[in-house]
Design a binder for these strands. Sequence first.
DNA 1: CAAGGGTCAGAAAGCGCTTTCTCCCGCGTG
DNA 2: CACGCGGGAGAAAGCGCTTTCTGACCCTTG
Lengths: 343, 343
Amino acid sequence: MRVRPGGGPQVRPPPTLATVAAAAGVSPATVSRVVNGVETVAQEHRIAVQEAITQLGYVPNRAARSLVTRRTGSVALLVREPVGFAVSDPYVGSVIVAASQCLAEHGCQLVVMMAREDDDTSAGEYARAGHIDGALLVSLHREDPLPQQLLSAGVPIVACGRPPMDLPGLAYVDVDNIGGGRLAVARLLETGRTRIATVAGPADMTGAQDRLRGFRAAVADAGLNPDLVATASFTQASGERAVEQLLAAHADIDGVFVASDVMAFGALRALRRMGRSVPSDVAVIGFDDIEAAQYADPPLTTVRQPAGEQARAMVEALMAQIRGEEPRGQVTLTTSLVVRESG
Amino acid sequence: MRVRPGGGPQVRPPPTLATVAAAAGVSPATVSRVVNGVETVAQEHRIAVQEAITQLGYVPNRAARSLVTRRTGSVALLVREPVGFAVSDPYVGSVIVAASQCLAEHGCQLVVMMAREDDDTSAGEYARAGHIDGALLVSLHREDPLPQQLLSAGVPIVACGRPPMDLPGLAYVDVDNIGGGRLAVARLLETGRTRIATVAGPADMTGAQDRLRGFRAAVADAGLNPDLVATASFTQASGERAVEQLLAAHADIDGVFVASDVMAFGALRALRRMGRSVPSDVAVIGFDDIEAAQYADPPLTTVRQPAGEQARAMVEALMAQIRGEEPRGQVTLTTSLVVRESG
DNA sequence: CAAGGGTCAGAAAGCGCTTTCTCCCGCGTG
DNA sequence: CACGCGGGAGAAAGCGCTTTCTGACCCTTG
């Protein structure tokens, strides 16, 4: 094919290393050295090359580079969730944004891949095809074979949150969910609540279970009943339903710890519908501190997890692994209480 | 470097085309033909190669392939917005998810890049470095030089929504925002509203302006005052403020068209705080039909734009361009009204 | 003045793949 | 029987880059 058939205006091919070398009057090797910041190049040549580069608008071809260096400069973010969840959950969204920013500082790109029911192997193959230097794993579920696959293929990975399966070598960055649950209960106790319930997340996600553990421990410590528990699935609708059930069974509940802000929005709605005022009748405390929490009605008191910090820690851990350093393994970040009006 | 210094378990390098060829007793060229589905290979060899591939777990190296084919199998999604917006705006999120799905069906990956204040050229360079077959542009602002850059570099692009700048060759997929604005007003009129206001989006975004145009036209057609307009920035907080201002200036407003669901949530909150009940005192109609709209209190009546369809159309248009076909140029999808309880 | 050492730049060998180009072989045809 | 033709497979030439190896040159030193 000499000319693109229906293609638009003819575009001349982008300049290559050789073009630059010719323009600067040096060898391709020298240009490569300048581009890669190798020190042993005479000042005079360095300048000539740099001028040629800017003048020609040269940009190194990544495919060619990665073919020889075995590094691609991109990192995958694998969301192991059947679609939509990732982007519909604001906390995950924040992690994605922050990770993307942080990777950019390392000169890396983020490739976002979501799980697909019909083709569960594609992510693994993609990684193994060498199109990626490493991967960030989000929303892992217990039976997912992917982490094991990547681990044994030697692909550097870091999980977001403590993974639900038992893989000793798997690095992760978690937040202190147990402590977060305790924090919420402590606040409810402080404000004089004595019938404290919780809306927990799914049973196969470690974060959700840890929050529940923290809740139970703190409530039991206070000598109260730790079994006012309803389970939901991190969506607003499920949170709404869970609170309805809780109040139907125990009309005297005066405080609820809801394991995510999005579910807490559902909880607020259910309470309003059932004629309870927040926080005077029932206090509500969420988890995440997503942006919308401050715009809820009333503004949501919540346990803050540091999305940005978590993303940053994950990226740093991953970059270290990619550089071949011994991974630091597991990191846990602290959570904190943000007091607003709901509880 | 013979051995990775601190690296984990030793991993043998992935099999190459040559490995497979040796195992199958054919030449590398034949393996390549089988992998790429070229017909002129004897059945016998084809089978031998396929067996060798599955047995060795061979995955083609994308960098090597793209070096020669000049195709990478990945497409960028460039969000031209200073961070966070993309993922915090559920509509954009839905488009991302749908585009990613649709691209996967074409065997392509999505690389998500957000604008960064400190390095505005990186996206353009990345694209020109040949790491990408084409790009989807989201949230374009008027002064953005990127589309022009990509266009003249010959990179196939498709914009999400009609672009705010004048670039004849730029393909895009828009939704009928004007019609959507009219739809909302028609509904408000139907339910007997006579003092109809709107919360509009930013002035430099075409979608926002088109919705406003539709609003104005329909209100004027009905012989009502088309100037009850407040401007906000597509965030919940700004929507809340805008409605406050509207009601402060015109206490008798009985219907509001809010140009996005997220802003409409803010509007609902402001109305509640100001003691107006929805929809009996003031009807509220949003735009987007994001998932949360049905969980609002009251459930939000809204103008639906087809996120999935839009993403799909964008991807198809882009793939056509990549294949070198004459681009179909501009597409506009219809919007529809989803009646719930708020208006 | 010769030998040794240190700097810096070019030549060239690939990285793993696709894609010509070439060749071989078996067939039908004049 | 010689010839041409075409299907199918291998040889080999790169794609654009990095990196080792080699070598030229200059400076220091005995």
